[in-house]
Simulated assay, not measured.
Amino acid sequence: MKAILLLFASAVLAVAETVTFTPSLDSDVYAYFDAPSFTPDSLNVGAHPTQAHSHHSLVQFNISTLAIPAAEIGTAKLRLFSLIPNSSNGGGLRGGNVSVHRQGQAWSLSPTLRWNHIKPQELAGTITMTAASTEVWVEVDVTTLVKQWAAGTVPNYGFVLKPESETLEPLLNVEFASMELTSFKPQLVITRSTAPVPNPVLSIAKQGNQITLAWPVTGSTGWTLQEADNLSGPWTASTATPASSAGVWQVSATAGSRKFFRLYKP
C-alpha cells in the first residue's frame, strides 16, 4: 500500500504574554534614623516639611530573565498593596501623590542603607492615594522606564517611592506591603504588546492520485517545506514551487511512494 505521512508544524497559542516579577530587594528609609525603619514588612512613604521625619522607599526588580524584547513591551505596571499605616510611623493614612522615580545608583541593605543612598532621577509615574486606598492594590504605569531597562539604555537600580510634595498639607503618610509579606509582595507586571503569530500548520488533501499540501501565508515567513523518505531524514527542501491562493500556499503532487513532509524554520 502506498502511504503518505504528514508532519505538522507545532502551533503557538496567540495569547497576550504577561510576566510578573517580585522584588529582589526592597526597603524604606527613615530620615530621622538615617536607616531603614523598624517595620521591615512595610514600605513607608511619608512627608515632613524639612524632611527630618520623612520616609522614602526603594523597590528593585531583577528583570534579566525577561524574554520579551524591549521593542515588544506593551505595558509595564508597578503594583503595590496599600496597608493601614503604623501610628508610630506618623499617624494614620494621609492621602496625596506618591512619586515613582528611577533610582540613580546601586544600593543594598548591608552594611546599612542610608538616606543619601536614595537618588531619585526622572519621574516614572505617580500614584494618587486617597482615604479609600487602604488594603487594596494600587498600580502605576512605568512602561517607558521598564523599556529603557530592558534595552539597557539606563541601569536598573529599581524605583524610588517618595512624596510628590514634602510640604503640602495634609502631609502624606502611606504604607505599602514589602516583599516580607508573601501574599502581598510588590509586583512588576510586564505584558507583550502583541500576541505572537501562530506557527503555520501544514495540511494535506488527497483526491484520486493527487495530493495537495497547504499552509497559511500569514505567519509563514522563513518557513520551508521539506520532505524525506524516512522520519529520521535526511530532510531536504522540496523542489516544488508553492502557489498562493486565497491566503494559502499550495503544492500539488502525484501520489507515489511513501513520503514525509514538514514545515521547517531554522
Rank of each mutant, 00 (worst) to 15 (best):
M1F: 14
I4Y: 11
L5A: 10
L6V: 06
V12Q: 02
L13V: 04
L13I: 00
A14C: 02
A14S: 09
V15S: 10
V15R: 14
A16F: 14
T22R: 03
D26T: 00
Y30E: 03
Y32V: 13
D34I: 09
A35E: 06
S37P: 05
S37Y: 03
P40T: 10
P40V: 11
S42Y: 14
S42T: 15
L43Q: 08
T50H: 11
H53Y: 15
I63A: 03
A67M: 11
P69N: 12
A70V: 03
A76Q: 02
K77V: 14
R79Q: 09
F81H: 14
I84Y: 04
N89G: 06
L93A: 05
H101Q: 09
H101F: 10
Q105N: 13
Q105M: 10
S108Q: 07
S110L: 12
I118S: 01
P120R: 04
Q121H: 03
Q121C: 02
L123R: 08
M129K: 09
M129N: 02
S133W: 04
W137Y: 12
V138Y: 03
E139K: 12
D141L: 12
T144W: 14
V146T: 08
A150Y: 03
A151C: 05
G152H: 01
T153W: 01
V154I: 09
Y157M: 06
Y157A: 03
G158K: 02
L161M: 09
P163A: 10
S165M: 06
T167I: 14
L168E: 12
S178F: 12
S183N: 15
L188A: 08
T194A: 15
P196F: 04
P198F: 02
P200H: 05
V201M: 08
N209A: 12
Q210A: 13
L213T: 05
L213D: 01
T224G: 03
Q226H: 11
A228M: 11
A228D: 13
L231M: 13
G233L: 13
P234Q: 05
A240E: 04
T241I: 13
P242Q: 09
S245N: 10
W249G: 08
W249D: 07
R258N: 15
K259M: 13
F260E: 10
F261C: 06
F261H: 13
R262K: 06
L263K: 02
K265C: 07
P266A: 15
